[in-house]
Amino acid sequence: MERKTITKWFWVWQFEDEEKWLNEMAASGWVLESVGFCRYTFVRCEPGAYTVRTEMRPYDEQYVRFMEETGAEYVGRMMMWIYFRKKTEDGVFDLYSDIDSRISHLDRIGKVLLAIGGANLLIGVVNSFNPGARVGWVNLLCATLLMYGLGRIHGKKEALEKERELHE
């Protein structure tokens, strides 16, 4: 089987772009086979034979089994992101079908960003006051970036909440 590995970076708030790209790859005959840190390995497939989905969720074996029962295939996971694919002939494949569950997905992402961002801020501040440590700015930079990510995720959430005022 013909395979190829592509190295590509996505910021956490670009998860929809990542998923879109993975589906464009599948549409052009390369379906995701495994994932690594910024590494995506694809295998040849019939163009458009698969739909690929990704979401952030702490690993839950019960959930993976549940997904498999519905005909989805578990591809792998990287950090807290989990990847599934499903043959297009087996029907439409989405992970979320209402606004509430999309919002709770964004909440999960937000909580992780807040936790890591908060830790970096704390370490950064402590290190800045400690003359022996010179890398406090790295943590502060990380914290700034993570907080920016949190803002982007929050923006997506607000848009959904506005929509929910009128319908589910």
Binding site: E55, R57, Y63, F66, M67, T70, A72, V92, D94, L95, Y96, S97, D98, D100, S101, H105
Partner: peptide
């Protein structure tokens, strides 16, 4: 249509 993640 209920998506699997929403249903779970």
């Amino acid at each position: 249509r209920l998506a699997a993640g929403t249903l779970y």
